[in-house]
């Protein structure tokens, strides 16, 4: 956005842009709501906004790890549905089985992630196909095995879905803790650095001694685990597990949030903090549309336009000329050379 003549000296990273965009959207939405005589920052609206961030937040944080490795996970929506059902049916309304339910759901999620990662790294199947296929497999299982909401979540665990500290839901706090853990993983640990390396260039990473397969598998397991936590959150909110959660479009939404957060879809660059910003942007939009009483179908239209426009705004910065060696002089960048034939 500041890519102008004199702006080169102060380098604005894409995470800063995400948060500037978030502030901009908050201001615009706040003004629009105020003009209509409402208050976007009333406590009810703020907690709705924060509640909205938690579900997508879990999935998007996990998705960030995978996208950073130049992979992607289209099965997360189905994993969320699966884990909500496994958690709720294992708990079966018994408060003493809460931990069992949580462990069972997370174990299944990790298993799905493990299979995803192995199919991608060992069988060398394109991530798009591998996770789309895995999603279809889980969908087939869900549709055959469960005929509607099943299981019962004991009240003790439902508090995970509803308790609030002031206006801030506990689920949002947990989401932010998960995001912080992912942040530490990516910026302070060897596994995190390896993820950037694998996403930046798989062959170079392998030649440098990174075990690329393990890194990919780890990213996929963590991504599915995050989806599993989202599934448990759904179970806690609904009080039962529900297969229809997969029709929420969490998979594509999470990828949109990740990319909106400034993470490069082609891997190797990005941050969890940006993703949280991307999730927050989507949540603010959703809340504003609700308060403004926008037609739900119009919401889809606006969301599509905003996602494309936002990504178009950063796209120019992400392929940052400063970070690349110039080989053949300044002009003639790759994808737009030549004239109209």
């Amino acid at each position: 956005m500041t890519a102008g003549t004199g702006a080169r000296r102060y380098h604005l990273g894409s995470t800063e842009i995400v948060y500037l965009a978030l502030v901009g959207i908050l201001v615009v939405a706040g003004v629009l709501v105020a003009v209509r005589g409402g208050n976007l920052f009333a406590q009810g609206n703020v907690s709705y906004m924060l509640t909205q961030t938690s579900l997508l937040g879990f999935v998007a944080v996990g998705q960030t790890l995978v996208v950073l490795c130049r992979s992607l996970d289209l099965s997360v929506g189905y994993v969320v549905a699966l884990c909500s059902l496994i958690g709720a049916t294992t708990m079966a309304g018994d408060p003493s089985r809460v931990w069992l339910g949580v462990v069972a759901a997370l174990a299944v999620a990790a298993g799905v992630g493990l299979v995803n990662g192995l199919i991608i790294s060992a069988l060398r199947v394109n991530a798009f196909i591998a996770t789309l296929g895995m999603g279809l497999i889980v969908k087939g299982f869900l549709d055959t095995r469960f005929k509607g909401p099943e299981g019962e979540v004991p009240f003790a665990f439902q508090t995970f879905g509803y308790t609030r500290i002031g206006p801030v839901p506990v689920s949002t706090i947990v989401m932010l803790l998960v995001a912080a853990a992912a942040f530490v993983l990516l910026t302070r640990t060897r596994a995190g650095y390896h993820m950037f390396a694998v996403g930046g260039n798989l062959d170079v990473a392998r030649l440098s001694g990174v075990r690329t397969g393990r890194t990919l598998v780890l990213a996929h397991v963590l991504c599915s685990l995050c989806a599993g936590v989202a599934g448990l959150l759904i179970a806690a909110r609904f009080g039962t597990g529900n297969a229809l959660v997969y029709s929420y479009g969490l998979d594509l939404d999470s990828i949109a949030a990740v990319v909106l957060g400034g993470t490069l879809l082609f891997g190797g660059r990005g941050s969890v903090i940006g993703t949280v910003g991307g999730v927050a942007i989507l949540a603010v939009l959703d809340t504003a549309f609700n308060v403004l009483d926008v037609n739900p179908f119009f919401k889809d239209v606006l969301r599509g336009v905003i996602i494309i426009a936002a990504v178009a705004l950063y796209a120019r910065r992400q392929i940052d000329p400063a970070s690349r060696r110039v080989r053949f002089g300044a002009k003639g960048s790759a994808s737009r050379g030549g004239d109209v034939a």
């Binding site: 990319v259 969301r303 599509g304 796209a315």
Partner: peptide, 24 residues
């Protein structure tokens, strides 16, 4: 191509826009 948005995102956005616009 010109705005350099990854096609996954472009066409995903287009999918949302068409889906919503038609129902609207």
């Amino acid at each position: 191509t010109l705005l350099r948005v990854p096609s996954f995102i472009t066409t995903l956005g287009m999918m949302l826009v068409l889906f919503g616009a038609i129902r609207l």
